[in-house]
Amino acid sequence: MRLAEGRRFATQFNGMIYSFISFARAGEATAEMASVTKPGKLAELDPKNLDRVITVENKLLGAVPWRGGTLGLELGLFSVKSVNLMSPILDYVTRVSEAGGISFVGKIKPFLPLITEGLDLIAGQTQNVAIEVALDADLTLVQSEYIAIVACKRGQIAPADVTLDPADRQLLVKGKPLKDGYCVLSLRATPEKADYGEIPELASAYTNFRDEMKSGKRKNAEEAKQALRVAIYTSPDLIESDKDRLVALNEKEFNRIFTGGPIGGHDVAPPPETLYGLKLYGSW
């Protein structure tokens, strides 16, 4: 992102990013994810030294199964004046957003009203808040892509002239740095959900399965394995191929434990402590 040189505030201020994302989920209502973030590099900025690009790696949403259809996106970059009233509100809403998490829909849902109402409260303080640039759009995605929103008049810049500097990801127009304020968003396709082991219902079901296998009681372990299987196949956070592979890995672990001798012996190692130990995506 880049913040324009001309400022509305003569004192120090914070940069704030707001995002609201909605997308379809198999077997469930449309999911909604919201976040308000105050990246460290955008905190307490000096208005005299803003004519530069600020690179912020801030994940708005973790990897989720894409079911197709429309991705609703609201994205805004704000300047928030550092005053006694605004700073505590911004800090509070940011903490609430962080507590909600960004990868699991069920975890963020209880926090949505606090985040959206907090944003309304912040944005309503027009003397202390200025919007830099924003986007409200429904997107149909077919591939990974970058989206740039620029604070300039329509037609001022030809999209074909805009490129992304590979070194620092600033926007270039005909090879030269863009002088207007802007924000760049990356939407990436990935075949892996790296945080699969942290999906709450799966992590809990696996812990029970692991403990029952350690107890050596086959019947109890079989029941726990079935409960884990159900949790995996009903999870909207996994793609179908990952579900099949994860179920197969748990079946393999069950058979290893109960056909290879007592746990703790020379031939049989105990089951992995976490779901990550099953290595859904290979060696890592």
Rank of each mutant, 00 (worst) to 15 (best):
P88C: 03
G40D: 12
L45S: 07
P65K: 05
V36E: 05
L61K: 06
D51C: 02
G27A: 05
K81V: 06
F111E: 04
L114T: 05
I89E: 02
G69D: 03
G106A: 04
P39T: 07
P88S: 03
L90D: 01
K59V: 11
V53R: 15
L61A: 06
A31P: 05
L45G: 01
E117F: 15
L45K: 07
I108T: 07
V96G: 01
F78C: 06
S82C: 04
T94E: 08
P88N: 01
K48V: 07
I17W: 00
E98V: 01
F23V: 11
L60T: 06
I89M: 10
F111C: 06
S35H: 14
S87H: 15
K41G: 11
D46G: 08
S19E: 03
A43G: 06
K81Q: 15
F23R: 02
G27P: 11
V36M: 10
A34V: 04
R67W: 05
G27M: 11
I17L: 12
L50I: 12
I108S: 09
G62K: 13
T55I: 11
L50E: 10
T55D: 14
E117R: 15
E74V: 06
D91R: 15
T70Q: 09
I102V: 12
P65D: 01
S35W: 03
G15I: 07
G118W: 04
M33E: 07
N49C: 08
R67I: 10
E32G: 09
N49S: 15
D46Y: 05
G76T: 13
K38Y: 00
M16T: 11
F78W: 13
P47Y: 11
G76K: 12
N84W: 13
K41N: 11
L71N: 01
T55N: 12
D46E: 07
E28D: 12
G101A: 05
D46M: 02
P88V: 00
K109N: 08
S79T: 13
M33H: 12
F78Y: 15
E74T: 11
E28F: 15
S97P: 03
P65R: 02
I115S: 00
G118F: 00
V36K: 05
